[in-house]
Write a protein that binds this DNA or RNA. Sequence first.
RNA 1: GGGCCUGUAGCUCAGCCGGUUAGAGCGCUACACUGAUAAUGUAGAGGUCCGUGGUUCGAGUCCACGCAGGCCCA
Length: 1122
Amino acid sequence: MSTYPTHSKLDLSQTARAIHAFWEKNDTFQRSIRQRDEKQNFTFYEGPPSANGAPGIHHVLSRTIKDIFCRYKTQQGFRVQRKSGWDAHGLPVELAVEKQLGITKEDIGAKISVEIYNAHCRQAVLQYKEQWDTLTKQMGYWLDTDHPYLTFDRDYMESLWHLLKQLHHKGLLYKGYSIQPYSPAAGTGLSAHELNQPGCYKPIKDTSVVAQFRAEGTERDYFLAWTTTPWTLPANSALAVGKYIDYVKVRTFNPYTYQPVQVILAQAAVQRYFLTESTQDPATFAHYRAGDTPIPWQIIAHYQGKDLIGQTYHQLLPYVTPKQPAFRIVADDFVTTEEGTGLVHIAPTFGADDMRIAQQTGIPPITVERGSDTALPIVDRQGRFVAEITDFAGQYVKEAYVPQEIRQQPNYKSVDILLAIKLKETNKAFQVAKYEHSYPHCWRTDKPILYYPLDAWFIKTTACKDRLIALNKTISWQPKSVGAGRFGNWLENLVDWNLSRDRYWGTPLPIWRTKDQQEEKCVGSLAELRLEVDQAVAAGLMDAPLPAEIDLHRPYVDQIVLVSPQGKPMYRESDVIDVWFDSGAMPYAQCHYPFENQEMFAQHFPADFIAEGLDQTRGWFFTLHVLAVLLFDKVAFKQVVANGLVLDQHGNKMSKRLGNVVNPFSMMDQYGPDTLRWYMISNANPWDHLKFDPHGIIEVKRRFFATLHNTYSFFALYANIDQFDRETLLVPLTDRPKIDQWILSCLHSLIQTVTETYEAYTPTQAARAIQDFVVNDLSNWYVRLNRKRFWQSEDGPDKLAAYQTLYACLITIAQLAAPIAPFYTEQIYQALHHTDQQKEACSVHLTDFPKAESQFINTTLEKKMHEAQKIVSLVHSLRKKHQLKVRQPLARLLLPIVDKTTKTHIASLESLIKSEVNVKDVAYIDDTTAVVTKKIKPNFKVLGQRYGARVQMLAQIIAQLTQADIQRLEQAQRLELAVVLPNSEAAMAPFFPGHSESIVLTLDDVIITSEDIPGWVVAKEGNTTVALDIRLDDALRQEGIARELVNRLQNLRKEQGLAVQDKIEVTLMPQHPFVAAAIRQHKAYICQEVQATKLELAETLQGGVTLDLDGYTIPASITKNF
RNA sequence: GGGCCUGUAGCUCAGCCGGUUAGAGCGCUACACUGAUAAUGUAGAGGUCCGUGGUUCGAGUCCACGCAGGCCCA
């Protein structure tokens, strides 16, 4: 016979440690996977974190979500493999190493060899792996951490090479250019990180120009666009507006040429360029003479940005003619009216946004040809205009690049100034001014940088834009708005993916080219590389074939020279690829596809489920999607859950600077991982931001876990005393008391709800439903009301039913809650379930998820009980109002019952109500009893639909019905109303033709409630009314005294430390005859309740204590009976 | 400037297909219970449902425009 272990104190940290040890010892995690059918896979992908930083509290949130659904699906019978992974390449690692070694990027390859540098990176990248693995274990995230995929493994990288070759083969991998910060003085590009160095941004005075772009088909309409880099104006090929920004056309005169012009700019920018009041007087324009100030102006037309889209204009500075149509108005979100004119000059070769917009709208850049290069910018790599810009050929575009001695010549003028003068003279400048702003400088040369097109390798995602969008629509996003909104919009505005990184610690691009760029090879595997090298050896370009062990990282691959089909040497393109490619390729590379495990890959692609933070929308979610669509024309994942940020308790972002970062380990130590998990999931939907407040964790512990624990402890206490055996034949459902049927119905309804909400990937709803059941239904109602059944001494079917019912509830709760709180549910499950023989096999996580059985579900009963609970609560409030303790029995409770079904419902729960509120009798007043005052209310839902606008009139009429009307309606089930409109309401007559109409009301059309019962104390909530007879007679008073006495004696027992089963002998010395009579009257009851074998009334009493019974004092003594 | 999210009690959150007295927990106040006891129960107080319009017989709920906060993008 098994006993049910009791844990006196709820220590969830300790529980977690013990359960964890149990899982380790019994290999429970692997067992949970192995026991499921190999063909019933549920595929989950773990997004690889970067282990060069410590894990934070937000990782607990995303990992809890992952764990919940993996565990849930396991319980549903699926085989859910979870391979961990590490994102091991990338800039953060490199920067950390630079810092650690005290070097800069320039030193790599100079002061320190690439080989040694990368060796440092390899070491640095996993420095927090231990912490991460500890977190994984402690929080109970079941993940295979023993066989992780590592993005720097050679096999992993070989898979990447294979994928890159596939893309290359499909023509989706190409060399182009991207706009990057570039230092002409140093001749090198700068990373965003380098631009973020302190002191890099400096205030600088530039010549700013508002240029006039003449609209095509007009003589004097001009678009105004502002720039602080006039040297980019010869490269202008478009103007951008904001779709929803308001624009105006202003009639005025050019301030330099005094010619009449009509200029178009944002309404919000008008006050920036027109300082005086506008004039409406046409004469002012007629009288204007060149040179007059102020210059008159007047708004003559209004537009919205979208009205302007597509209009064309004349090229401002026609040095170079583009091959495709250009000089058009386009729209983009990045346009603002905070500075400038609200129209933005677009030079695709000199701005990242400019280039993106040009690509999206099909506008060509202004470029020139030189030999094999067909698209060079109009500024060379030294920062000088090319020959085609005839007026300024060979001149530096930034004054700072010009040698000092030239700048100091008296007649020297910068290109910006010269350009401005030229524009002024040709009626193309509306305003020229000095403008001071903060501008990035090259940290080495201290000269301003240019945004300049530099070579880069791209994945042509735009080629598959439609498929990307179409397939995204087949993905189930939680929340939906991320998929349709954030992710969807991102796809709509797709640009090609810049894959190049001019760095060292990453997957090298496997592309070799000849010096003249004419021949190109993309290598897709190690074997292929060996073959190529062998050929290179044969051609005399390499000394030796590839060694058996080769690292595919730099610098080793850089040393490999291949031979082209034409016999020329080929060198590797020096870039490494974006780390996001690494992680986006994990479905393939984690199993070394296609070189190994092809079948396994087929079974585990695409993923059924992934989950990460919202910040991964444009990160991992995107790269996974892009690669799957481009390579396989499939989605990479079918279901995704995105979680929001974890903020501090005041809603601020957690940051080291603010010192409000929460340490996940100390949280788990303090409160236990289950509490933390339950709190994070139950408090708010995962995609809402979580305001992390430890008070909330404490509340969860107290409210949910402590209640569940108490309920279990209660069960265990008595089950052990009674030697309850869970294997005993079940008492048939119909033989169990109503209340058992009720809680079992609630339980199965709960199973249904929880299953549905897990299936819908809304764990918050699941957690809340479980908690609600445990706290309200199970603990606060079922256990409280049924305590007596457990401690009653004789065994029998009723007691057995109580045990079996509570047992079923507890064990099912353990299973339902197991995905969210894996440790405590395991403890409770094992405590309930274990048999010594098969203990090692016993785990809640190895069980099948409970199934809701319809034979248990009785929604009518659930409603009834709810009604009974309402009645009880109302009676309590009445007792309270009239200061009548629950211990004092009352004679009668009166329930006005409007319809018969309600009456039968309540009647079936009558005894329950009686004992709960301590009344002797429940009486019902039905509609024939005239003592009840009733209230009638329209049922708007029914009447509103039928009568529409007339419902308000009807409501007035209904409100005026008399008690007699109501009674007639109740008896006849219908009531005919003759609706007559007073004359003053004649305006409403069309609704009531003939001013009179007959309307028939049925019981469904109204809601009748009992308002009051004259002479009784009444309480009412919604449709429920109760009336209480609060008169007391001597019999009731005596019974009340008996109950009070029991209560005091119980306290005495407890004070004296007696155990539940101990028997006692009681001696009392009641001084008041009424009390003595009460005791004699209820002696048997008292003895039974306090487990007394003997109760004596004595004349005198030695020692003992004095009991106080609401004014009566009774000397008493109890002794334990051995 | 754009996309998305959020806005309901002091705090954290529910609130379905629109139905006329807007709910829970915590906290607060008072009381009860005392064989679940470092637990538990009941009651009370506490609301401009962010604002303004609109649709509707009827709006916390639907629509529009704003406001505030957040995230992402620029």
